[in-house]
Simulated scan of single mutants.
Amino acid sequence: MGLSVVRDLREMRAPAGPEEIERFETDLLAGFVLARCAAGLSDNMIRSDVSYRPQQWKLRRVNTPRHGSTV
Rank of each mutant, 00 (worst) to 15 (best):
L9K: 07
E11V: 12
A39Y: 10
L41Q: 02
A30S: 06
L9W: 09
Q55M: 07
S51R: 14
D49M: 15
L28H: 07
L41V: 11
K58M: 01
E11F: 15
N63F: 09
V50Y: 04
E11S: 15
T64M: 03
R23D: 12
D43S: 11
D49H: 15
E22Q: 13
D43G: 05
Q55Y: 08
S51K: 15
G17W: 07
M45P: 00
D8P: 01
Y52K: 15
R23A: 04
S4T: 13
D43T: 12
P54C: 02
P18Q: 13
D43W: 04
A39D: 08
F32E: 03
T64N: 03
G68W: 03
M45D: 00
A16C: 05
P18R: 12
A38C: 07
E20T: 03
N63E: 07
R13M: 09
A38V: 06
Q55G: 15
R61E: 03
R23T: 11
M12S: 11
R36W: 06
Q55D: 05
A39L: 03
V33W: 00
N44W: 07
A39H: 03
Q56A: 13
P15I: 04
V62A: 13
R66I: 10
P15K: 04
S51N: 05
R10L: 08
R53N: 03
F32Y: 10
S51G: 11
V71F: 15
L41P: 00
M12R: 14
G17N: 11
E25G: 05
D27T: 11
L3G: 08
R10A: 10
V50L: 02
T64V: 05
D43I: 14
R61W: 05
T70I: 02
P65L: 07
P18K: 10
S42L: 01
S51W: 10
D8M: 07
E19H: 12
K58C: 04
A16P: 01
A35W: 11
A35F: 04
P15H: 05
A16I: 06
T70N: 15
A35Q: 14
M12A: 13
A38I: 04
C37G: 10
L3Y: 02
G2N: 13
L29F: 08
L59D: 09
S51L: 11
C37N: 12
Y52M: 14
G2H: 05
A35P: 01
G31V: 02
H67R: 13
L3D: 11
R23W: 10
R36A: 07
E19I: 13
A35H: 14
S51P: 00
Q56L: 08
L29N: 04
R10V: 12
W57Y: 07
E22A: 14
